[in-house]
Structures are given as structure tokens and as C-alpha cells.
Amino acid sequence: MKIIKNIMITGITGFIGSSILKQTTISKYNIFQLSIADNKLRIDSHSSYLDAINNIDCIIHCAARVHIMDDTSTNPLDDYREVNTRGTLNLARQAVEAGVKRFIFISSIKVNGESTQLGHPFKFDDNRSPEDFYGKSKSEAEEQLLQLAEETGLEVVIIRPTLVYGPGVKANFSSLLNLVSKGLPLPFGCIKDNKRSLVSVDNLVDLIVTCIDHPKAINQVFLVSDDNDVSTNEIVQQMAKALGKSQWQLPIPTDCYRLAGKALGKEDVINRLLGSLQVDITHTKETLGWKPPQTIEDGFKQTADAFLQRKLKD
């Protein structure tokens, strides 16, 4: 049996890719990077990666085309497919040619969908039901990777994270953290009846590293979270506690949000704020004998500390 020793990571400058290098247990492997800056390569349908992946045993594929604000593309779905679907399969096919043993694909919970009914979480074997271009491109990549695995013997591992947070996180999580840090009353007092599954980047990376050579990870789909679902109100409470701020949340009725969302044409935004997105990670835990090593409290504290340190430097 081929022993995995040489690891190639794509998307090394991204949030997840860069975090893998900080995981202490990764140090037993030889780590190589597939970087656009270093190798003049892109993840697409036609680039050649054979020289870069020669002698690689496992590829951790984190690189992806993610959501772009004010995207001016005339065909955004095809743009997502070129990187996330065709580019992924191009890399995977060349991995087979180069003799790579295992291919770990960092997908997205968006493959399952955008929301769940409270108490009815997504499961690993649910039918795929992506709604946006990003989710569709990831879903198509998953299907084609598993087909390639069946045809060639490449060991494929698919990981679908929920919302990932941690030191250096950006986007909506960072914006909310900044808002909470000001110590002002926020209007989330009534948003207590939804539940969201989050995952700290430390927990996600621990699972990724576990999957590098775990014999039961082969050709599996794993959902991942902190295994502690929280409401919007609880997220703000956890942030305030981690930041050392007292937090008074105004009891604005949820119906007011829905009316405002309809009036402003922001119903999708309001649905995400008020709605639930839960995942059941029982399959992940039982298959791999794994559980999230970091609590949500410690994850929020680590994220808040990094946020405050960055503010001091600015």
C-alpha cells in the first residue's frame, strides 16, 4: 500500500489553505504548494500540472472561484464551472496520470442547499440541491470526481463545510464582529428560533488532516461543523462575550425584518438572517472516529482576539 508522505495544497493563500499550514499535525508530511504566483498556473480546464504534481501522494484542493461582489461577467455560471468544475476535473485527471493516491476536495454545504427547516439538518447522503452558481459548480465537480474515482481508483474525499470562521475571517462574519465590537445595541433580540451550523477553521483543518490517510475516508462525503448549532441571537452573544463587550439586543419582531426585506428587495438577505441552516455530522464522526477538537466558545475567542490585535495595528 502506498504511504502518503508528499502533500500538494492548492489555494494556499486563501483562508483555509493558509490555515492548513498552521496545523501542527501536518508537519509529519512534506508540503508543496500549487500557487498561481509561484507556478504561473491557474485552476482551469486546460493548464498542465504534471510537473508540479510529480511525486505527490495526496492533493488537498482548496482553490476555487468564490462569490464576487458586483460581478460583471456575462456568463457567471460558466465562469464558476471553468474553475470549480472543469478546472477541478482537469487537475484530478492529471493527478491520476501522475500516480497521486488521494484527492481531497473542499466543497461547500451549498451543494445541499441554502437553508433547512428547524430541526431537520442536511445529511451527507441527501440529494444535492444547489441553488446558486457557486453551489452548482461544486455539485457538478463532486459528481464527476466520484465518477472518476470509480473509473480509475483515485481515492476521492469530499468535505462540505458550513460557514467557516476563525482568525482573519472576512465577509459577513467579520462585518458582524466589527459591529458587535462597538458595544452598541443591535436589533437581534427576537432572532432566537433559528439555528445555524458553523465551523471554526481549526476544526475544519483538523478534519482535512484526518482525511489525508484515514482508510475509511475513501470516496466519502463528509459534512462538518462545530457540532453546536446557534441562533443569530446566540452568535451575537458569543461574539460579545469573546470581545469582552456587554451586549444589549433590541427585541425587533421578525415580521418587521420580513416587511423591510420585501420593501427593499432584500428578501434573500433577510431569509439568511432569520432562517436555519443545520448539518448532521454523525456520519463524519462515526466513520472517522472524529469529533471537533475546538469548542465554539474557544473558536469565537480565538477569532475575536485576532480581530482585536489587528485593530490595534491599524
Rank of each mutant, 00 (worst) to 15 (best):
137 S>G: 04
136 K>F: 03
183 G>S: 13
239 M>T: 11
88 T>D: 14
285 K>V: 10
264 L>K: 08
87 G>M: 10
239 M>R: 13
2 K>P: 12
65 R>N: 06
265 G>N: 05
236 V>E: 11
80 Y>I: 03
208 I>K: 01
81 R>I: 03
161 P>E: 07
31 I>W: 06
11 G>Y: 06
61 H>A: 05
15 F>M: 12
118 L>T: 05
99 G>H: 09
40 K>L: 11
191 I>Y: 11
70 D>Q: 15
43 I>M: 13
219 N>Q: 07
183 G>L: 14
248 W>Y: 13
313 K>H: 11
45 S>T: 11
273 L>I: 14
11 G>A: 07
278 Q>L: 07
193 D>T: 15
182 K>D: 03
30 N>L: 11
298 D>I: 15
183 G>W: 05
287 T>W: 02
25 T>Y: 01
26 I>S: 03
252 I>M: 12
194 N>I: 07
113 G>V: 00
71 D>W: 15
244 G>T: 13
10 T>A: 11
265 G>A: 12
274 L>V: 13
28 K>S: 14
89 L>Y: 02
28 K>F: 04
35 S>Y: 02
237 Q>L: 00
59 I>A: 06
248 W>T: 15
38 D>Q: 10
300 F>R: 00
292 P>M: 09
308 L>C: 09
123 K>S: 09
184 L>P: 06
160 R>G: 01
46 H>N: 12
293 P>F: 11
279 V>K: 05
277 L>H: 03
90 N>A: 14
128 R>Y: 01
164 V>P: 01
1 M>G: 12
73 S>R: 04
28 K>R: 12
